[in-house]
């Protein structure tokens, strides 16, 4: 390290040391809890769904009502500062379901509220959720075209 400019060889050697020292992510443990937390959220959704069906709602209506209920609960927990704990613990289990999507929007809204309703909340509401929408819709569009030509 006697020269200010670090050589590529030194960088490679250092990267090897870093990967030795760095703790390995606990994949199996994280996957287990993602399964439990994600599964639990789906179970709660199923309970809501069955309940709405028992009230006489149609399948479509019950689905929409279930989604809205889960989104509301996630938004509420985010406001109370609790949902980040769910995802911190459950990882993808808390991020992937619709509740994670609600969390990403409410967290942004809370964070940027101090910068005003237009350029704060308005402009930054989709900071986290935006990429999911853009690439989700793009993927659906590509799949739709492929389906049209190759079905």
């Amino acid at each position: 390290m006697s020269e200010a400019i670090v050589s590529e060889k030194q960088r490679k050697e250092y990267a090897a040391i870093v990967s030795r020292v760095k703790p390995k992510p606990r994949v199996w443990r994280n996957m287990f809890w993602a399964f439990v937390v994600g599964g639990l959220i789906c179970l709660i959704g199923q309970v809501f769904y069955n309940y709405f069906l028992s009230l006489g709602l149609s399948l479509n209506q019950a689905g929409a009502a279930t989604s809205s209920s889960l989104v509301f609960i996630a938004a509420f927990l985010t406001g109370l500062g609790l949902y980040d704990e769910v995802s911190r613990f459950g990882g993808a289990g808390g991020i992937v379901p619709i509740t994670g999507f609600a969390n990403s929007m409410v967290a942004s809204a809370l964070e940027y509220r101090a910068e005003g309703l237009i350029f704060g909340v308005g402009a930054r509401l989709f900071t986290i959720a935006g990429p999911v929408l853009v690439w989700g819709i793009t993927t659906a569009w590509v799949a739709g075209i492929l389906y049209y030509f190759f079905r």
Binding site: S87, I95, N103, A107, E111
Partner: peptide
């Protein structure tokens, strides 16, 4: 990220 966003560090 926003502080209330659920992420695993």
């Amino acid at each position: 990220f926003p502080t209330e966003l659920g992420v695993q560090r």
